Simulated scan of single mutants.
Amino acid sequence: MDHSILDPDSAKERLREWKDRIDKLAADTRTMSERLQGVRATATDPSGLVEVTIDSTGSLVDLKLTSKMQSTKPDVVAQTIMQTLAEAKNQLADQSQQIIAETVGTDSPAARAIAESVGNQLRSEPVQKTDSAETDHEDDDYENRSFLKKD
């Protein structure tokens, strides 16, 4: 078959193929959107002080603090929460980019732009630990300290 633009049968076939590609892209995009909306990420800090859960937008939806926080300085607790939140956002970015790759692929410039945008929006640099943050709660004897005692 001649693929001349003047050949009506060839033109109809090209239009049908184009429509099929557009329909598949639309279906894949709907699937991607549905899956992205349902994504959640949960992260726990290495010392087991904090667990955070975020939704698909990166918003905090759950925060769990263990009893270890009672004997940990408030600034260390706050920093640990922020570090753990950053880790959860990085996990969410990874999961979201994986969903994008699985549903719409990474071949098209549009798909790559979506994946990059999601990564830029969600991904955060981990908060740097300070020396005091590491030693203040890792070496504490949580069982034998009063949370009322001032440090």
Results as ranks from 00 to 15, higher is better:
residue 3 H to P: 13
residue 3 H to M: 10
residue 4 S to P: 01
residue 5 I to G: 02
residue 5 I to T: 01
residue 6 L to V: 08
residue 6 L to G: 09
residue 8 P to S: 06
residue 13 E to R: 14
residue 17 E to V: 07
residue 19 K to L: 09
residue 21 R to N: 10
residue 23 D to Q: 07
residue 23 D to H: 05
residue 24 K to E: 10
residue 24 K to Q: 15
residue 25 L to R: 14
residue 27 A to T: 08
residue 28 D to G: 08
residue 28 D to R: 11
residue 29 T to P: 02
residue 30 R to V: 11
residue 30 R to Q: 10
residue 40 R to H: 13
residue 42 T to D: 09
residue 43 A to S: 10
residue 45 D to M: 07
residue 48 G to E: 05
residue 48 G to H: 05
residue 50 V to I: 14
residue 52 V to H: 09
residue 52 V to M: 04
residue 53 T to H: 00
residue 53 T to V: 03
residue 55 D to E: 01
residue 58 G to A: 03
residue 58 G to E: 02
residue 59 S to N: 15
residue 59 S to F: 14
residue 59 S to E: 14
residue 62 D to I: 06
residue 64 K to W: 03
residue 64 K to S: 13
residue 66 T to E: 01
residue 67 S to A: 06
residue 67 S to D: 15
residue 68 K to V: 00
residue 69 M to L: 08
residue 71 S to V: 09
residue 71 S to R: 13
residue 71 S to K: 06
residue 74 P to W: 13
residue 75 D to F: 14
residue 77 V to D: 03
residue 80 T to H: 00
residue 81 I to M: 05
residue 82 M to S: 07
residue 84 T to K: 00
residue 85 L to F: 15
residue 86 A to F: 12
residue 86 A to Q: 11
residue 89 K to Y: 06
residue 89 K to I: 04
residue 90 N to F: 08
residue 90 N to A: 08
residue 91 Q to S: 10
residue 93 A to W: 02
residue 95 Q to K: 12
residue 96 S to N: 07
residue 96 S to F: 04
residue 97 Q to F: 04
residue 99 I to S: 03
residue 104 V to I: 15
residue 106 T to Y: 07
residue 106 T to C: 04
residue 107 D to M: 15
residue 108 S to F: 07
residue 108 S to P: 09
residue 108 S to M: 13
residue 109 P to A: 09
residue 109 P to Q: 15
residue 112 R to S: 08
residue 113 A to R: 15
residue 114 I to E: 09
residue 115 A to I: 04
residue 116 E to R: 11
residue 117 S to K: 13
residue 121 Q to N: 12
residue 121 Q to P: 01
residue 124 S to C: 05
residue 124 S to E: 09
residue 127 V to I: 12
residue 127 V to T: 12
residue 127 V to G: 03
residue 128 Q to W: 02
residue 129 K to A: 12
residue 130 T to F: 12
residue 132 S to Q: 13
residue 133 A to T: 03
residue 134 E to Y: 14
residue 135 T to E: 12
residue 137 H to R: 10
residue 142 Y to F: 15
residue 142 Y to E: 05
residue 143 E to L: 12
residue 144 N to Y: 13
residue 149 K to W: 06
residue 151 D to L: 15
residue 151 D to F: 11
residue 151 D to A: 11
residue 151 D to I: 14
